[in-house]
Every structure is written in C-alpha cells, then in structure tokens.
Design a binder for these strands. Structure first.
Lengths: 195, 195
DNA sequence: CAGATTCTGTACAATACTGAACACATTCCG
DNA sequence: CGGAATGTGTTCAGTATTGTACAGAATCTG
C-alpha cells in the first residue's frame, strides 16, 4: 500500500481515537478529525464515507490488535498462557477510553457482539468436555464463559470495577482453568514430558 | 505552504535530530533519514540537496527557536529578564544532544560562530558603557561576554559542567548585571519608579 | 585485487493529497 | 422568525510524494 495512504489513515484513526476519548461520538465532526490528523478534509472522505464508517473501520483495526494480543503464538488458541491473558488485559487497560466508548455508545452494540462471537468461536475449540464437564452442555458452557469474559472486559474498560487489569486477569485465568478451558496442548508438550 | 511540505519537512528534521543524537553525523545516511521519517528518499532530496544542506537548515531551524527563546518580549533584547535566561538554558538543556552534536562535529564550527555573532550583535545594543565600564573598550567587553556566554552554553550542552541549567543561568544573570549588560529599560520602568 | 553491497543523486510516470469551491442541511442566536 | 455560522459530502485542477529505475561512487569482504 502507498505510504501516503498508510500515513494518512494512521493519522486519521489516531486523531479519531483521541477525540472519542475526549468527547461523545456524536459531537465529533469531520472537520475536527481532519484538523487533528493534520490532513485535508477531502482526504478523510477519500478513505471513509462518513463518521460511522470511520468508527466501524476503527473498531475493526482495534479488533485486529485485540485478537492478535489474544493469540501471541500464531493461530493456536485464545489466551494460550496466563501471561498472554495478562498482556491482553493490560492492552485493554491502556486503551480503555476507546473501548469504553465503543462499548458504551448505543448504536455500537456491534462491538460487544463481535467480541463475544470471537470468544465463543475460540473457546469452543479449546473446551475440554471431559472430567467435571462431562454432564454439561458444551454450547451453554462456552457461551457462559464467553459472556462472562466479555462482561469482565467491559467492567475493566468502563472502570466499573475496582480491580486492576492484573488482578482481574489472574483471577480469570484461574476461573478458565477451573472450567477446563485449556489451550490445545502444543506438539512439543508431549515430548517435553518425556524428558 | 502546502501542508504536505510542512509535514514532510517536520518529519525529516525530527528524524535527523533523533539520528544526530544517536550517532555521528558522518555515519548518518539519507536512507536512514528517509526511513525514520517515514518518507520516500526522493522527498528528502526534493527539500535538501544533501546531508550538509539538511544539517544547515536544521541548525537554522533550531536557531530560530533558540533566538526566540532569548527574545520572549518581541524584538526588544536578548535575555530581557532573568526568567528569560532561565528559559533559554532549560531549552538548551532539553535539546542538549542536538546542540552538542552541532557544536562538536568539526565541519560545523559555523554553529559556534553564528551563535557568537548573534550574541555580539545583541549584547552590543544593550551594553551600558557608563559607570564601571567608562574606561573599557566596548568591542572587547561585548566580545568577552559573548564568548563567555557561548562557552558556557557549550559547557552545558556537552555536559562538560557539573552545574545544572538553572544554577548556570542564575550565576550568568548575575555576571551580566555586574557588567552592566542590561536590557534596554522598558518605557514603563521610568513611570514605575515614579510611584 | 575483484565482486558484492550499500549509498548517492537524478529522473519520471503514477497517484494521493491539497485547498478551494459548491449546494445543501443543521444548529445557533438575537 | 430569519440570517449567521458551522458541518456535510462532492467535485476538481494543481501539486507533492511515491516507488522504481538507473549509473556512478564508496565501502565492505573474501
């Protein structure tokens, strides 16, 4: 992609995220965004049809980062290690103002739904239905955990919890393990056990 | 000026200053600068004929800032107040790495000369040759003070002095006063004395 | 030494950005 | 109410930047 496009888009998104952290989405104007991004107004329109499109793509961009932070080991699993979960929560904590806005603004419930969908898909792959889960319905269990995780994330980014990102992720890791939400064992874990 | 020009130049100069703070001027390549500035190599050449031109314009840019910091009250005087001198020294302290490089690199003695020239011109205007200076040669006195100031600035930015910017500027202000290097009295200072 | 690599400076067509203008909608305010 | 101000979305010609290519200089390296 042309370097100019990359630079402009980054500047616009950065400006937009700054603004959304400062004021309500509806009050933000294209003029403000262009000014803050140090870009011509026409440039904004050349990339995004309007504010809502910008917000949408912005969420998408953040989502990529968020998902990446859940999947540090290639494409293997959501939160393959406790450290990975910690990292994700710290990332969310740092960008809380954006995520809070994305979650809070009515008209953007899409965000919560997308996050849940990703988590449900990921958890479904990793759930161990043996042991204490033998008598459970997998769909319900997965949904239960995904909704819980989404809710806790919402608590974190909206500052609705007194607990820190670290405390939360630590506790949540324990709860995931308790429910046998284990990441698929890596190939080398077997050979590791042999020695 | 076209916004693109401003943005590119700022990025290039910023990148260059970063690099000069990290390594020797001669080791810096145009490629590095372009890469760091996130700009095409051709763009660098469209604004600056080569590294040396870039350094030159860079010094010029910094010089404008530096002079501005000496002249906070319009165009009246160099260091019209002790606070102004303090501000200048703090500014120098913050950008020490750049100024150190500009002063240190042989091939750039121009910098020291320019600084001295500015100071000499400014001091010459402000020198009070009455009182203890009655028997002195003005040219020598002015040059003496300008060279001293330049030297002290060099000491500061090259970290060749254990004293802080604040300590130095405080002492230097006293020395300037002692030598009757007073800023031209503002019109209202007379009326101030009347009350 | 020769070959490989990197840097330099220049040229160019393709392209993204610019600022200005425009008609229209919305909001603000006396 | 009415008009002043501000925002929207579009168009457009002009311009700065882009990536690429090139030849020659400089530097590295076996």
């Amino acid at each position: 992609m042309d370097r100019r496009i990359r630079k402009s888009q980054e500047a616009i998104i950065e400006a937009f995220i700054q603004l959304i952290a400062e004021k309500n989405f509806e009050q933000i104007t294209i003029n403000e965004i262009a000014e803050r991004a140090n870009v011509s107004r026409g440039t904004v329109y050349s990339h995004y049809t309007d504010k809502y499109d910008l917000l949408d793509q912005c969420i998408r961009t953040h989502f990529v980062k968020l998902i990446d932070s859940c999947l540090p080991c290639g494409e293997q699993a959501l939160f393959p290690t406790e450290a990975a979960l910690h990292y994700t929560f710290r990332y969310l904590d740092e960008h809380a103002s954006f995520y809070a806005a994305a979650l809070a603004n009515q008209g953007v419930p899409a965000f919560r739904n997308r996050l849940q969908a990703v988590l449900i898909r990921g958890f479904d792959k990793q759930m161990d239905m043996g042991g204490i889960n033998k008598m459970m319905d997998k769909g319900i269990l997965v949904q239960f955990l995904a909704v819980a995780m989404t809710g806790m994330i919402e608590q974190l980014v909206t500052r609705a919890t007194p607990y820190s990102a670290t405390e939360l992720s630590g506790q949540l890791w324990a709860l995931m393990e308790r429910n046998q939400m284990v990441p698929p064992s890596a190939p080398l874990s077997i050979s590791t056990k042999l020695f």
